[in-house]
Amino acid sequence: MAPVTGVVFRPQSPPEELRAVVEHAEAAGVAELWLWEDCFLEGGLTTAAAALAWSTRLRVGIGLLPVPLRNPALAAMEIATLARMFPDRLVVALGHGVQPWMEQVGARVESPMTLLREHVSAVRALLAGETVSVSGRYVHLDGVALDWPPPTAPRLLVGARGPRTVALGGEVADGVLLDSVTDPDVVRRAREAVGGAAHLCVYTEVDPRGGLRDLGRWVARLGAAGADTVVLQAPGDAPDPRPLVDALARPFPPE
């Protein structure tokens, strides 16, 4: 089965350009639009809320929310609110964040892996409607439960590059978001690490001026390697995703 495809709205574009991109992607029938949250550009939850409100069908992904920046109870509350208002249209990835940036804002921790494990586990349990009490190294919750958990929790992924984080995503989340993929073998190794049931989403940067046949071959190669979703990202010096939206709106030529 061919992978689901989508595009990234990079935060190198100003937030006031988001609505035009959302409406363009919605009109073109693209399945997914993904958003970044990078220091110190644009907020992932705020842009996701706007993108969901400006569309009716588009699935919106946040890739990713850095866990050092939010208490897991707050993260779960915000995610649950969006999931209830826009059912089955939200995907969220949680991750370490860029460590120099986390240090810059006073949020860096000694063990990012421990924090990620504790944070993701707590958020997932809260979204499932559980009452959570935990006293971990970094996460401390005492009888916390969401008053408005979503009837169906959105897909929760772990953003990963290294093998340990990939394996963690397969263990504590619904799957993994792989960033900056340039080699199908990276996808293949991740699939082997997380197993067949986990969802594997892949960010890959492509030149929108490339031909449709080459783009179709690349998406097919990543799908054959194990990607369930392939998200196309324009280069940082030309971040507008609308040329990629237009490419995805046309059928890939047959081999």
Score class of each variant (00 low, 15 high):
residue 238 A to S: 11
residue 149 P to A: 04
residue 33 L to E: 08
residue 128 A to C: 10
residue 51 A to W: 05
residue 100 P to T: 04
residue 31 A to P: 06
residue 46 T to L: 14
residue 19 R to F: 12
residue 51 A to V: 06
residue 192 E to A: 15
residue 148 W to Q: 15
residue 220 A to L: 09
residue 186 V to T: 14
residue 235 P to G: 00
residue 226 G to Q: 08
residue 26 E to G: 03
residue 164 R to S: 10
residue 24 H to K: 01
residue 84 R to A: 07
residue 212 L to G: 05
residue 125 A to C: 11
residue 38 D to K: 05
residue 128 A to N: 15
residue 68 P to R: 08
residue 231 V to G: 01
residue 101 W to T: 10
residue 75 A to G: 00
residue 112 P to D: 06
residue 30 V to P: 06
residue 235 P to N: 00
residue 110 E to Y: 06
residue 240 D to M: 03
residue 108 R to V: 14
residue 179 D to H: 14
residue 160 A to P: 00
residue 197 A to S: 13
residue 177 L to W: 11
residue 147 D to E: 11
residue 159 G to K: 01
residue 59 R to L: 01
residue 80 A to N: 08
residue 95 G to Q: 06
residue 29 G to F: 01
residue 125 A to Q: 15
residue 64 L to M: 12
residue 185 D to V: 13
residue 78 E to P: 06
residue 235 P to V: 02
residue 110 E to F: 11
residue 27 A to V: 02
residue 158 V to S: 01
residue 127 L to T: 08
residue 4 V to C: 05
residue 86 F to V: 10
residue 169 G to P: 01
residue 121 S to M: 04
residue 15 P to S: 14
residue 114 T to L: 06
residue 77 M to K: 11
residue 46 T to N: 13
residue 164 R to L: 08
residue 44 G to E: 03
residue 248 L to S: 03
residue 211 G to L: 13
residue 212 L to R: 13
residue 167 A to F: 03
residue 133 S to L: 07
residue 67 V to W: 10
residue 226 G to M: 05
residue 92 V to D: 09
residue 150 P to T: 00
residue 193 A to M: 14
residue 24 H to P: 01
residue 115 L to Q: 08
residue 54 W to P: 09
residue 87 P to R: 10
residue 181 V to S: 12
residue 3 P to E: 06
residue 10 R to K: 12
residue 154 P to L: 01
residue 7 V to D: 14
residue 232 L to G: 13
residue 49 A to G: 05
residue 243 P to E: 14
residue 171 E to L: 03
residue 82 L to N: 07
residue 246 D to N: 03
residue 114 T to Y: 01
residue 101 W to V: 11
residue 150 P to H: 03
residue 5 T to Y: 05
residue 162 G to H: 02
residue 154 P to H: 04
residue 247 A to Q: 05
residue 128 A to E: 15
residue 48 A to E: 03
residue 163 P to Q: 12
residue 147 D to I: 03
residue 60 V to R: 08
residue 116 L to R: 02
residue 11 P to M: 07
residue 1 M to V: 09
residue 178 L to G: 07
residue 159 G to M: 07
residue 177 L to I: 03
residue 151 P to E: 00
residue 16 E to R: 08
residue 128 A to L: 10
residue 25 A to Y: 04
residue 154 P to M: 00
residue 226 G to Y: 04
residue 154 P to S: 01
residue 97 G to K: 05
residue 127 L to G: 07
residue 215 L to N: 09
residue 186 V to Y: 09
residue 17 E to S: 15
residue 131 T to R: 10
residue 101 W to F: 14
residue 1 M to A: 11
residue 30 V to T: 09
residue 197 A to L: 06
residue 70 R to S: 06
residue 38 D to G: 05
residue 57 R to D: 15
residue 4 V to H: 10
residue 140 H to M: 05
residue 62 I to Q: 04
residue 154 P to A: 00
residue 82 L to D: 06
residue 113 M to V: 12
residue 181 V to L: 09
residue 46 T to I: 15
residue 57 R to Q: 10
residue 175 G to K: 02
residue 190 A to L: 12
residue 181 V to C: 11
residue 191 R to S: 14
residue 203 Y to G: 11
residue 67 V to H: 12
residue 66 P to A: 08
residue 199 H to E: 14
residue 90 L to E: 09
residue 74 L to D: 10
residue 88 D to C: 04
residue 83 A to V: 02
residue 93 A to F: 01
residue 94 L to F: 15
residue 79 I to F: 07
residue 122 A to E: 02
residue 76 A to I: 02
residue 21 V to T: 15
residue 99 Q to R: 10
residue 2 A to V: 13
residue 10 R to C: 07
residue 81 T to R: 07
residue 163 P to D: 13
